[in-house]
Every structure is written in C-alpha cells, then in structure tokens.
Amino acid sequence: MIVRVLDKVVFAVLFIIALQVPILADHYRQYLNGYYDALRDEITSSTEVAKQHGFPSVDAMLESLKQNSESVVRENANLKAERFAQITTLELGMRKLEHGHYFEKLVFMVSPSQYGTLNRVMKNFSPSIPLSPSSIVFSLVTAILLNLLIWTPHFCYCQVKKSKQKPPRYSYR
C-alpha cells in the first residue's frame, strides 16, 4: 500500500516538474530575445560608426582596431568580435525554443554550453502551468516514462520475489 502511494506521489512530482519545462523554455526564449535585441542594436550602432569613419564593414573596423597600438583598444575589439559572433548561436537557440518540440527545448536549455544562461533565467523563474495542450501532453508523457523508469526495477523485483514464493506447478498427464 505504501509503495502505491509513494508511486503516485513520485508521479505527481515528476509531472509538476515536467510541466515547468515549457514555461522555462518560454522564459529562456524571452531572455535570449532581449539579449539578441541589445546585440542587434550594438551591431547597428557599430555599423554606423564604421561607415562614418570610412570602413566598408564592422568586421573591417574591428580588424583595424585589433591592430591598434593600445592594448585596451585591441581587447575591446576582440570582445566586440566575440559578441558579434554570438548572434548566429542566439538565432539558432531562439528558433529551437520557439519552434522546437518539448525535448529539443529541454536538451538545448540543459546543454553544458547553456548553463550560465540557464542559471540567470532560473533566478527570475517562477513555476506555473502551461496552457497549450501540446505542452501538457508532452509533460504527461515525460512524467509517465520517467515514473516507469524509476519504478520498473522495484516492480520487477516484486514479481521475481512473488514467483519464487509460489510452489511450482506440476502437470499431470
């Protein structure tokens, strides 16, 4: 009896946790959108500065700045180049979070390269329940599968134990 109650409690906890993935993905996407918008604004302003000073592109301006004799200017140019290179990764991540299915979103968010961003998003995250039917179904399926994965060894052990306690059946012909 206790095992059955515990099974239901474990399933309920897993279901509640699984329901948080779509909500977390939405918060994560919003965070990336804000960062993406700020980065696009920085690229736009850098493009205008490059044009004002006669450079054909931002990359040409950054390459020129990397050749500067001042180390602070070279370091700033390297940092800007790294940030500008992130834009493609951000676009890919936002696309996965917006159009991907439940497991694509989950894998993207918990990948090691995203731990820093995930920690920042988690600081402002508050649990809730998703409203889309697909999110609820994916969460339910995930909770069922995880629950089965957790409890299968116990139930197999119980079946083996039960079958050993029964006397063997003899067939008489």
Rank of each mutant, 00 (worst) to 15 (best):
Q30K: 15
P133F: 11
K8N: 11
E63L: 15
N147G: 13
L19N: 03
R169P: 00
S132D: 09
Y28H: 05
P56F: 14
K166E: 14
I136R: 02
I87S: 04
L24Y: 06
L62D: 03
F125W: 09
S171R: 09
G100N: 02
Y35A: 13
V160I: 15
G116K: 11
H99D: 08
I23T: 01
L140E: 05
H101E: 12
M122N: 07
L148H: 10
A85T: 04
Y170A: 09
S64G: 12
L146I: 10
R29Q: 11
L148S: 06
F125Y: 12
M109H: 08
C156G: 07
F55P: 10
R173P: 03
I23W: 00
Q114H: 11
S163Q: 07
F55S: 12
T44P: 08
Q159S: 06
V58W: 01
E82V: 14
S57I: 11
K66F: 06
K164N: 08
M1I: 00
Y35F: 06
I17F: 13
D7P: 02
A38K: 10
Q114G: 03
G100Y: 10
L32N: 02
F55Y: 15
Y35D: 06
N147L: 03
V73S: 07
L118N: 07
R40Y: 05
L90S: 04
E70M: 08
I43H: 04
I87K: 00
V21T: 00
T47P: 01
N124P: 00
C156V: 05
H27N: 14
V137S: 02
K96E: 00
N147Q: 09
V121S: 05
S126K: 08
A18W: 08
R83H: 13
P168Y: 07
Y170C: 06
A77L: 13
H101Q: 09
S135C: 00
I136S: 03
D41M: 10
S45T: 15
L146W: 12
S163W: 06
E48G: 11
K96D: 00
K51C: 01
F108L: 15
M61C: 11
L149Q: 12
A85Q: 08
A12V: 01
R95Q: 11
F108T: 00
A60N: 13
R173D: 04
L62P: 03
P153Q: 14
E75D: 15
V121I: 11
Y172S: 11
Y102N: 05
K162T: 12
I16N: 01
N33D: 04
V160K: 09
V10I: 02
A60F: 11
I144G: 01
K96R: 09
V72D: 15
F125E: 10
H27M: 07
V49F: 08
A77D: 13
R40L: 14
G116Y: 03
H101I: 03
G54K: 08
E70P: 01
V10Q: 03
C158K: 07
V10F: 03
Q67E: 14
T117V: 14
G34H: 04
P22T: 14
I136K: 05
I2N: 14
I129Y: 03
L97M: 04
N147V: 02
K8A: 15
S46W: 05
A38G: 14
V21W: 07
Q20I: 07
S139W: 04
A25L: 12
A81V: 07
V49K: 13
T47I: 05
P112L: 08
T142V: 01
P130T: 06
E48H: 10
V137L: 13
L118V: 00
V58Y: 01
P167T: 13
